[in-house]
Design a binder for these strands. Sequence first.
DNA 1: CATGAATGAGAATTCATTCAT
DNA 2: AATGAATGAATTCTCATTCAT
Lengths: 197, 197, 197, 197
Amino acid sequence: MSPRTKAQIEKIRDDRRKQIMNVALHLFATEGYAHCTIAMLAARTGISKGLMYHYFNSKEALLEAIIEEGLDEVMNLFDPNRDGVLTSREFIDFIRKVFAVMRSDKEFWVLYVSVIMQPRVKEHLTDKPIIRSIEQFLQILMEYFTRKGFDDPNLEVLTLSAMIEGLGILMVYTYPEMKFPDELLEKYEKRIIEMYQ
Amino acid sequence: MSPRTKAQIEKIRDDRRKQIMNVALHLFATEGYAHCTIAMLAARTGISKGLMYHYFNSKEALLEAIIEEGLDEVMNLFDPNRDGVLTSREFIDFIRKVFAVMRSDKEFWVLYVSVIMQPRVKEHLTDKPIIRSIEQFLQILMEYFTRKGFDDPNLEVLTLSAMIEGLGILMVYTYPEMKFPDELLEKYEKRIIEMYQ
Amino acid sequence: MSPRTKAQIEKIRDDRRKQIMNVALHLFATEGYAHCTIAMLAARTGISKGLMYHYFNSKEALLEAIIEEGLDEVMNLFDPNRDGVLTSREFIDFIRKVFAVMRSDKEFWVLYVSVIMQPRVKEHLTDKPIIRSIEQFLQILMEYFTRKGFDDPNLEVLTLSAMIEGLGILMVYTYPEMKFPDELLEKYEKRIIEMYQ
Amino acid sequence: MSPRTKAQIEKIRDDRRKQIMNVALHLFATEGYAHCTIAMLAARTGISKGLMYHYFNSKEALLEAIIEEGLDEVMNLFDPNRDGVLTSREFIDFIRKVFAVMRSDKEFWVLYVSVIMQPRVKEHLTDKPIIRSIEQFLQILMEYFTRKGFDDPNLEVLTLSAMIEGLGILMVYTYPEMKFPDELLEKYEKRIIEMYQ
DNA sequence: CATGAATGAGAATTCATTCAT
DNA sequence: AATGAATGAATTCTCATTCAT
């Protein structure tokens, strides 16, 4: 029963924080940000409303943390070897990871999309580093397609983006219960890789 | 002096209704459904809060009306000649119309997407006839691709849907400022037509 | 198609007025005064809200008219021969009428009671002549019991009033669906007559 | 400094709840349910409107709580010894208690009556246990009168109910200013006891 | 006489946030 | 660190009443 060490306290704090964020991610995604109340989140997390404010200064701060840290994780996943040049192998790898994430982190996708889509949300994110990462990434893609000799790299960036983003939307919203059998997803993945490898 | 005729009253009602819906469509799209208050909508429409409720029973009912009637209009636009068989010509026509709508009714798109994406919104639409229309339409596409001799019509429906839906998302959200020069959009449109005509 | 005569117009007006009052009586009684809206009343009557205000200056005026005219009617029914002296025969007659009214005008009873009971309603009626009539009537009863040689006429007025009013309440509220078979009511009526004739 | 214990919180909640209900009982009774606003109740209680909703989900829920808990208390008061058999002594005791309550809890009576009388209120109570209690109680009375050898026990239940309920109404509404001198009430009470003991 | 669109004042309700304990 | 009572500002919704036609 010795008093907890600084590190232990830190860990508890961190776990709580993550726990709150996970619950919120889930609820925001399934119930909608506006419809979720702090009371709901607290109850689901099993803590008091007051304690929520020890971890996040406001409902909005909680949202921002989820988005930012989530995107960060995703971007890190995709981060090519930072030399700024995408090889065919790295490209394939990237596509594979995208599909893996889509399959496994469906819930983050839902939130990401549903929240990003909220008018006025973008403003909150505009100056965040994540946006720069995305832009930088698109730049790398542009160069990849140029190097590959495509007539209009812009058109290919657009096509690729649309095919991926479109799939996400369809998975998440339009036919959520629809099956998307693994076989079909694999074919779709394969098609993209063949188009652009 | 004489009381208004039924027709006159009908017209007033209809005009107001449309007017409110247009204002709401615009505001929901730019400010977000949750952020819009009835007071805002009323002020923008130039009427009293009370009158809003004369036309729509609740904020949610207003939203539903916009979605439903909007989707209806869009679906009617695409309505092939109802024999249930899609010819190559009709298919091309359909794609052309989709892009035309995307270009001109961008605002409806924004709302449609941003709202459809709101968790809990789908439930409202589940039993609405519009959903059946969409399903029916996908069925027609399936048959079209089968007739055309594609190996996996399912994969083609998915690809086509994703390419269109994905473009919509990109136009509206992800790179709204990236102007999607007409030239680029035309190339994208042409590509789709060539893939599937 | 000659223009309607003054008298005809007057009659139409009067009929409408009565019609509105009947509808309102019914709705106030079954739905509660506060819960009834002018819109409801107008719709049920089959006229416009605006027209309601041609006949009654306000919702409250309508209520007052119903109460006052209704009570008036009832009181007239009971009006003994105005010499201010109640004979045994007149007393029996009075009791008989009371029970007849209770049986037939149940609905007016409901409204009368439910409305009279509303706190703040009495104030509206305080100076109305109807109140004087009631007081005068109680006075006559007092004299009747005195003449009959009852020890404490006050106690008898109270008992009689309670037995009648109590029955009304029970019929209307406490056991509305309960039958109160005619046989039972008749026995109750007979008992009262025997107690005081 | 330390957080409040569960018991402390429980007590605060309980006290507040009771406080709100008492204020509401008083105001509903004197001003009428429909005329009372949450703002009024909150101001009188000395708390914020918001807190009202912390304790009761709606104005109606508050009303229901008052009625239900109040009736419960009253019924408990009258609860005979639950063997389901009423002795003469118990009967007399019951009548005494009724009159005591009428004299002391006049305010609850007013509310009970005025509210029970509101059309649409009964529906709320229909399935509540209190209704069963009342029915059960009437059953016990029936048996009492049967055992006592009355010709038509039904008639006696009706008479007794009417005499009591009628007195309540009269006290509360019809002649509130006529003070019902104690002497008169005692005579009335004695009369009932003599009729049925 | 008749209509129902329109108003506006007010009512109920919600909820992020604060704070005493 | 932890709690949930308490606040208050904002928001949705209601409805008697007015008025142009």
